[in-house]
Design a protein around this nucleic acid. Structure first.
Lengths: 353, 353
DNA sequence: TTGAAAGCGCTAACAT
DNA sequence: ATGTTAGCGCTTTCAA
């Protein structure tokens, strides 16, 4: 069922049918309303569907953008993607979500190729940094320079990458958490994190851990407080198993002297492990220990006490990234954004006794 | 940068270049190895990328399949999708994930259109049933019959839909849970569920709730046990807020007399609410009450006690769905599958005292 | 072993 | 207001 069939059935030329169906004017010409209606009616009757491949080939536009999601970010990605879809739909674009569920650089490369071959007009990517500290920076830059397809980075900004980025202000967020705890009377505020937090390299695969550590440091130093950090000594270095590797933190914290009265945890997984371990050891939370985490994972509200956490503005980030990309597709320069998370105060913090 | 450019640069015709680059024989003809190598070298040098739109238009094949995910299933979808990608890649297909984050029937329809327009060769969809009990059954059937594109349903089988389905055996799973509890000495085993569980209609939007209820019933009756079910009296009927609406269940269960010794919960969200509410009321879990849930959400392991749950074999389901689809694309008939979940025994059940 | 040419379904000048 | 025609980038007979 092609345009030609519809045109034949309606007794007009393909050009006329094309104009009628896409509702567009060709040059200064239109189709008379009556003919147009007849054509559309015929199309409907014949159950005609335009072939996008052909249309795109002809117009040399696809109005398609790609969203590249890494497996590690899948859970947050829903918020990104739904915001993204909303703005794209409003502007007549369609998107095509491609994911690289294995967190491999090679896989990211392969998807970039696919983007080019599919002629996408832009890509929103959550860049990968592998365990060896490598990233596809060159590729990101070339995609823009050689192929002319605009890119925006979401969630993390790769050093040396020319594409604008939309990220969470991890440093500001953690400093905010420290400040809040301080205002509640806490003075011995510790940080619970993961192996790798102290690598300041731009390609630390756990960059967020380092950023959050810095935010903690910043908050503490502004208040004249002495920082203390707890790190597991063993366990896989891997965000998938963060909960498991964080279980040993509780006893470390319990054994510390002086014992902190509040903990700023790297992530919700760390926070969950703390709540579990500390409660199990007989502490009453939050009275005996305040815990703030970061990430606002859906399980926070199901923990007892429900976990107070820093919520990154995912939807807004997705929206901004898309808006920037669209600007770039239209030829303008894109800007980067860093957005402060908001603090969702649930039940896991209390004033110091 | 087109094939013609490469051909010109290599001093051959586009036809030759095409054959050399795709590494295919046209008729009984090949390209000499030397020329082929030169062409490929030129292509590499010029950074040539084939235009898939053009290629697909010409071959009338896309080797692309669509995976349609509804928002409500996002979290499980990662497992589906990664399995799907793996088998697709092995067979030289590429997929394109499209989602309808708003859970609207209209949105599902729109995505079906897009699939047709994009000429996908098959679609794997997680069908939607809206709150009014409607579904796009007709559309599913027509996609196959009118457009000739094979479809497989994932996660739920729509009544009257001719497409094969790959689903979890909810009934068998729940019966298994009941049996296990019985073997641990429990006799007063209750079911905690949601509003809508007792609607036997094929288009009950909470079909899974009804299926699980039936599984519970089946298990109980096989053992000659008397069923008891607890349902919230108020609250939004919505899987997004299942945790919130389940909070009132704990006091209902506590007030019951005789009080059950074990609960089979509709889902992990219900189970989490129970663990929280029951513990808060002073019960010691699992000694005072056993809880089994279903879904194997990532947060199960973070609860205290960690939630014992029925884990649907997502990866296997995604794999089977893809395999069936591929079979259908190759002209064979697809078969349906119903897979039993496995019981992940964590800490929330114990022998009756 | 290679090239010429037709065509995939559609759009867009240009002509009528 | 409508039709004619020439592509878009690629594949694929068919001929050389």
């Amino acid at each position: 069922m092609t345009l030609a069939d519809v045109a034949a059935a309606a007794g007009v030329s393909v050009a006329t049918a094309s104009v009628a169906i896409t509702g567009r004017r060709s040059g200064n010409c239109r189709v008379s309303v009556s003919v147009a209606e007849k054509i559309r009616e015929t199309a409907r009757r014949l159950n005609y569907r335009p072939n996008l491949q052909a249309r795109n080939l002809s117009t040399r536009r696809t109005r398609t953008i790609a969203v590249l999601i890494k497996r590690a970010a899948w859970h947050n990605a829903m918020f990104y993607v739904s915001a993204c879809q909303r703005v794209l739909r409003e502007r007549g674009y369609c998107e095509s979500v491609m994911l690289y569920p294995d967190n491999e650089l090679a896989s990211e490369r392969q998807h970039f190729d696919l983007c080019i071959e599919r002629q996408v007009e832009g890509v929103i990517a959550m860049p990968l940094i592998d365990l060896a500290g490598r990233a596809n920076v060159e590729l990101f830059n070339r995609l823009r320079e050689d192929e002319g397809v605009p890119v925006v980075q979401l969630g993390i900004a790769l050093e040396g990458c020319t594409a604008p980025s939309v990220v969470t202000d991890e440093i500001g967020g953690m400093a905010k958490a420290v400040t809040l705890l301080h205002a509640m009377g806490h003075r011995r505020i510790a940080h619970a994190t993961m192996i790798g937090y102290d690598d300041p390299g731009a390609f630390n695969p756990f960059r967020a851990a380092h950023l959050r550590y810095q935010g903690y440091l910043k908050g503490m130093s502004e208040l004249g407080l002495e920082p203390t950090v707890f790190v597991p000594t063993t366990g896989a270095i891997d965000t998938d198993t963060l909960y498991e590797s964080s279980t040993q933190l509780s006893s470390m914290i319990l054994a510390a002297s002086p014992r902190p009265t509040a903990i700023v945890a790297l992530s919700d997984f760390t926070g969950a492990a703390l709540i579990s371990g500390l409660s199990h050891a007989g502490l009453s939370l939050p009275a005996d220990m305040s815990v703030i985490a970061a990430g606002d994972q859906p399980f926070c509200k199901m923990l007892r006490p429900a976990l107070t956490t820093l919520a990154p503005p995912f939807e807004r980030e997705g929206e901004l990234a898309t808006l920037e990309l669209l600007k770039m597709i239209e030829g303008a320069a894109g800007e980067s954004h860093s957005l402060l998370p908001s603090l969702i105060n649930r039940e896991s913090i209390a004033a110091v006794r």
